[in-house]
């Protein structure tokens, strides 16, 4: 059913319209915005130093002074969570941006060029994907040495193949599209076709996947932190906090629960945003 719209009306922005329709995306955006806002503002005004040891006040339950209580050396958990937010969110996003960028370049080349290049790349990808994410990241982080930077490299390596696969699949579909075929008839070289046609058209599923993956990556960093392979104490990283707090769950429940809650909220929020972006970018969901 085709309806003729004049070109004028199409100037109004459909992306905005679709975003407005999607309430859950807004829930995600608001949660994430609040976490980011707090993590920027609160440390400026907080009377507490995230790393200062105050043994007199250890294991204080939540109160008007220490909103989320204090930990085993008397640090304010609320302050540490918000410092941790800068770290966890920042690192999570950075890892994914790097992994997605590398993945889309390799993936589109692999998918578009095909042949032997594709075979070799895909063998590698299959190899990496054969291991469970976490195990491989753990092994890599352990080999590289336990610190945050190495944990980031390990997670990025684990994440890249997903994007290669995704971008390759898109590239293989796009290769058959008439606009790519017609670019081939002009006689312009393949690299240019990849840059001009394949990457721009393959990018939206990658962005969607990336948004969904940030939450997962934060969890991975946290898990590595939890296992002692990521950020080292006393860095206020969520995973590390949960990992230590875990042992106190029964006696001082607030210690692991609040960092866990923030982890849950931010990865949930990112998933909602990812879903929203998918709806916005997917032309088939157009109303």
């Amino acid at each position: 059913m085709q309806i003729n719209y004049s070109s004028k009306t199409l100037k109004s922005n459909p992306i905005w319209y679709k975003l407005k329709q999607n309430k859950m995306t807004w829930v995600g955006i608001i949660i994430l915005a609040l976490i980011v806002l707090f993590s920027v503002i609160v440390p400026l005004f907080s009377p507490f130093d995230p790393n200062k040891i105050d043994l007199v006040n250890k294991f204080q339950p939540p109160s008007s002074q220490h909103w989320f209580g204090t930990d085993e050396v008397g640090r304010d958990i609320f302050t540490r969570i918000l410092y941790g937010a800068r770290l966890s969110l920042g690192v999570g996003i950075l890892i994914i941006v790097i992994a997605a960028a590398i993945g889309i370049v390799i993936g589109t080349i692999s998918g578009y060029i095909g042949g032997i290049v594709d075979t070799i790349i895909m063998r590698f990808v299959d190899m990496i994907l054969a291991f469970p994410n976490l195990i491989l990241a753990m092994a890599l982080a352990a080999v590289l040495g336990p610190n945050l930077q190495n944990a980031m490299i390990a997670i990025a390596i684990v994440k890249i193949p997903v994007y290669i696969r995704l971008a390759r699949g898109e590239a293989m579909l796009l290769k058959e599209k008439l606009f790519v075929k017609s670019a081939e008839t002009f006689g312009i070289n393949k690299g240019l076709i990849i840059i001009k046609h394949i990457i721009p058209n393959a990018i939206s599923p990658v962005i969607i996947q990336a948004t969904l993956d940030v939450g997962d990556t934060i969890l991975l960093i946290a898990t590595l932190g939890f296992l002692g392979l990521g950020a080292q104490p006393p860095t206020p990283e969520w995973g590390a906090m949960i990992s230590i707090g875990w042992t106190y769950l029964l006696t001082y429940w607030w210690y692991p629960v609040f960092p866990g809650l923030f982890l849950f909220l931010s990865s949930g929020a990112l998933n909602l945003i990812g879903d929203g972006i998918r709806d916005v970018l997917d032309p088939k969901s157009a109303r």
């Binding site: 309806i3 003729n4 719209y5 004049s6 004028k8 009306t9």
Partner: peptide, 8 residues
């Protein structure tokens, strides 16, 4: 020309 815009 083209058929009119059915929105308006």
């Amino acid at each position: 020309g083209e058929p009119p815009n059915l929105l308006k």
